[in-house]
């Protein structure tokens, strides 16, 4: 508990320093609880998510950084590796491949990378996975025509 608090405090200080260097990520710690964070990340360019801002919720366990933070999308997102209802994210570094070398900030970067390059083999949103197969290409990499489709699916 003490160790995780100390580590999170270091991350907090680092985040203050990094704000300028990474304009795509805005990571904020809850005022009263250092184990709760939220992040606003910018949708990567040349993907259906370009121009969007997505909110993530972090819940950090007491065994952090030996155990990964729990992260989910608060903003609804249509993506093969994100559960459409719960916002749960299927990403190896948030599970088995986690290590203390990762930080909350670098997790945000990894999630942005996942938005641009989905992993169709581990879908949490099967419709989106099927969509990508049916279209015969990796979702997110073809901008305009696809984007309309995504928007249609997002607002039924």
């Amino acid at each position: 508990m003490q160790a995780s608090r100390a580590r999170l405090f270091k991350e907090y200080k680092e985040v203050q320093r990094e704000k300028v260097t990474d304009p795509d990520i805005q990571l904020v710690c809850d005022d009263s609880n250092i184990f709760k964070w939220t992040a606003l990340i910018k949708g990567p360019s040349e993907t259906p998510f370009e121009g969007g801002v997505f909110q993530l919720a972090f819940s950090v366990p007491e065994q952090y950084p030996l155990q990964p933070p729990q992260v989910r999308f608060l903003t609804k997102i249509f993506h093969p590796n994100v559960h459409f209802k719960t916002g749960e994210i299927c990403l190896d570094i948030l599970k088995n491949a986690w290590s203390p070398a990762w930080t909350l900030q670098s997790v945000c970067r990894a999630i942005i990378a996942l938005m641009a390059h989905p992993e169709p083999d581990s879908p949490l949103n099967c419709d989106s996975g099927v969509t990508s197969q049916w279209q015969g290409c990796t979702p997110g990499l073809q901008p305009c025509p696809r984007r309309d489709k995504f928007h249609n699916l997002l607002s039924p």
């Binding site: 100390a6 680092e14 950084p65 070398a101 990762w102």
Partner: peptide, 10 residues
């Protein structure tokens, strides 16, 4: 390039 704070506690 590992940030110091990620490994110093260990």
């Amino acid at each position: 390039g590992y940030p110091e704070f990620t490994f110093e506690d260990f």
